[in-house]
Nucleic acid binder design. Structure first.
Length: 398
DNA sequence: CAAGCGTGGAG
DNA sequence: TCTCCAAGCTT
């Protein structure tokens, strides 16, 4: 270690500057107002791989719906998933619910204070355990997330791939050196806040940075190339057919939705029955198969549009069909239920499924419209973000 | 340990 | 439209 590096690594130097900066520049966020361990728990789960702006409305609603750890533990899982609808990564919701139950049972209705004990809760990994320990209980812990990792990587001029486990560990060790004995939680939030507001991935505002004198990347002129991130694998393209089966027995249209398995994509949420389209098979045949897979039969299917959804590792195009359920073939189980489009807020439903169901609800039926003997072009105004395009005409005509 | 797991905003 | 990626965890 050179003299200069030793000076940069000296404890308390970074913390003092960061805390002073944080006291002035911290954002007012709902989990920072009248903070509590429970608010920290919920916010940390929601913030996993999710931006603050996205979380805000979910956090407020969630705390109204489940005001305490005990209230959350008492609630049925389906209610927790419903409150999570649209937020993504749905195992987080189930794990949060389980973590509340376990805490109530094994920790006397409280959260454990220590990083190692927190780590054993479902859905609590290395980051969340350290974050809760520090933020909720002022324990001496350093949480490595995207922000804090970037800050430390620049401070210490670490040039290796920031996402590799070995580098994450090195960053954690390096960060722990800087944790002050007082205000450990504020320090942790200060590091992440700096990463979010100043030490950003692109075009960091080094002139505004309170710890610029300690930054190895800045000294070396490497803030643009540190941290280095390895390229991620390409998304796979998938085409599916999904089918909206209308119950002919009800005057108001309602449709069959199925519950996806916990361990698959969008696990625990409800969506239209679907099946993957393989080369050489017609979309309509696949749509019939999607119905058959859940024990239902359509008497006739019509294409009503296309929904595209980009996931982290998958690019899904869904061809949506609609038809009437064939008489005498109505089934029901804990994996299948019938919903009216206006009831969707009460069940767990992904953004993807919501798009398909909105398409179904907003597309007029052809059965009453036989005279124009052609397929309706779905050009009506839909929510822009829905990215719903017609299956038979050029896309993006809105 | 690599791969699977959502969504939306910014550029 | 496309890329990047955001307070990661699990298997």
């Amino acid at each position: 270690m050179t003299q200069r590096e030793r000076k940069a690594a000296r404890p308390f130097g970074l913390a003092r500057e960061l805390l002073a900066w944080y006291d002035v520049h911290r954002r007012r966020l709902p989990w920072r107002e009248a903070p509590s361990p429970y608010k920290t728990l919920v916010s940390e789960f929601m913030l996993q791989q999710t931006t603050v702006a996205t979380v805000l409305p979910y956090f407020e609603r969630f705390l109204c719906r489940f005001p305490t750890l005990a209230a959350l533990a008492r609630a049925p899982e389906s209610a927790v998933l419903a409150a999570w609808s649209g937020l993504g990564y749905y195992t987080r919701a189930r794990n949060l619910h389980r973590a509340a139950i376990v805490s109530l049972r094994d920790h006397d209705g409280d959260l454990p204070h220590e990083e190692s004990a927190l780590r054993r809760l479902p859905g609590v990994g290395p980051y969340t355990a350290a974050a809760i320990a520090a933020i909720a209980f002022d324990e001496h812990a350093f949480a490595v997330d995207g922000n804090s990792a970037r800050v430390i990587a620049r401070i210490a001029a670490i040039r290796n791939d920031i996402r590799s486990p070995a580098v994450r560990q090195r960053i954690k060790t390096r960060g722990e050196v800087e944790v002050p004995t007082a205000r450990a939680g504020d320090f942790m939030q200060a590091v992440m806040e700096l990463g979010a507001l100043v030490c950003t991935p692109k075009n960091p505002s080094c002139t505004q940075c309170p710890i610029r004198p300690s930054c190895g990347a800045y000294r070396a002129g490497l803030t643009a190339s540190i941290p280095r991130v390895a390229p991620k694998p390409a998304r796979r393209v998938v085409h599916v057919a999904c089918v909206a089966l209308q119950d002919p027995a009800t005057s108001k249209p309602r449709f069959a939705v199925v519950r996806r398995d916990d361990n698959e994509l969008l696990g625990g949420t409800w969506s239209l029955p679907e099946a993957v389209i393989t080369p050489g098979q017609s979309r309509e045949a696949i749509a019939h198969r999607a119905a058959a897979l859940v024990g239902l039969t359509a008497d006739k299917l019509e294409p009503i549009g296309v929904v595209r959804q980009i996931f982290t590792h998958r690019d899904v195009t869904a061809f949506v069909f609609r038809g009437n359920l064939k008489a005498n073939r109505r089934a029901s189980s804990n994996k299948l239920r019938w919903v009216f489009p206006d009831q969707l807020s009460q069940i767990a439903i992904s953004s993807f499924a919501k798009k398909t169901l909105r398409l179904v609800a907003e597309t007029p039926s052809t059965t009453h419209d036989r005279r124009t003997n052609k397929l309706r072009t779905n050009k009506q105004r839909l929510t822009p973000r829905a990215r719903i395009v017609d299956s038979t005409t050029a896309p993006r005509s809105t």
